[in-house]
Design a protein around this nucleic acid. Structure first.
Lengths: 166, 166
DNA sequence: CGCAATTAGTTAACATATTAACTTGCTGCC
DNA sequence: GGCAGCAAGTTAATATGTTAACTAATTGCG
């Protein structure tokens, strides 16, 4: 970036791409910024989950079950934004830890219903206290409006993408 | 535990947690929504990258190098939001594919500098055309304002989190 | 009824994420 | 000059992400 002239990638190889096109890649990258913001936010929670020996995904599953009651794996994949093959392993491990159990789905042998065990519910309550306390502190420090503004922007963005998808 | 009406998790186990607290978990979860929005957005690009046999992370690295010139792994981890242990493998594979190469860092044997090869630059130009075309179509369909509004909300959120971190 | 097309989940193969521990080179300071 | 401490990367172990292929159960419909 300073002394040697051809440190960068343009100019000397500008056979098919004018400099302006190359420079246009300096635009902002939404996917990357969504990822970065989430990371920054999660910095405040990950240590908490790790302390309770919970992964992020296990926590999402546990929270979904605690908040919405028993549900099938298929619905968990949607609510938790976890792909089916990943969920297979996650549920398997949570079952080994006896945080959840699977009960047969009456009327469809392919399906099953996932349910928190008593131990799972107890763990959820404990972790939930820590998580909610941390969240409350963040909201207090940076302001509810900031959070809601971001939620709204995300909602509008999602809606726009959904319209586009059809 | 099954046929009884208590299909959910509250009420029967409300020893230490009042129902209101349990119900409060129905609040919106920012980390999850950031993840979900990013997924929705990436749905439009992932097939593209897959078509070129590129992973998301490889594309981030390639784009960072193309846009900002050669840089050290340490800076790539920051710009691409990839942890160091992950980057080790990513760079190793990209090196095998001869998309990048590592040159020695004069003056510090621990470091190295990552550089796109000619093949890497060529691939970047090709993929970049597809990606930018798709992005342009999305912007045209959902509006530049929507995108910028989200960028702004993310910026404000990041700034608030940064203030909090110190 | 009978079978093609769907659907829920799993398996497989490889890439990445996450935390902790480790290696090596560098830097400051006595 | 030498050693404590730090900084850059890697290794290791486990969990998850991603795509494709696969199994088994169900549904739709002639």
């Amino acid at each position: 970036m300073k002394s040697s002239p051809a440190n960068n990638c343009e100019g000397d190889v500008a056979s098919g791409t004018p400099a302006s096109a190359t420079l246009s890649t300096h635009r902002r990258h939404l996917a990357l910024e969504l990822l970065a913001s989430r990371e920054r936010f999660m910095l405040h929670f990950r240590p908490l989950l790790t302390h309770h020996s919970l992964t992020e995904q296990q926590w999402r599953v546990m929270r979904a079950l605690a908040a919405n009651g028993d549900m099938e794996p298929g619905e968990l994949t949607k609510r938790c934004v976890i792909l089916k093959p990943s969920l297979t392993g996650i549920l398997s491990r949570m079952e080994d830890l006896e945080w959840i159990e699977r009960v047969a789905h009456l009327g469809d042998q392919r399906r099953s219903v996932v349910r928190l065990t008593a131990a799972g519910r107890a763990l959820h309550r404990k972790v939930s206290r820590d998580v909610e306390a941390t969240y409350a502190r963040i909201v207090r420090d940076i302001g509810q409006e900031e959070i809601e503004a971001l939620h709204n922007a995300l909602d509008r963005f999602n809606a726009a993408l959904d319209r586009l998808a059809r």
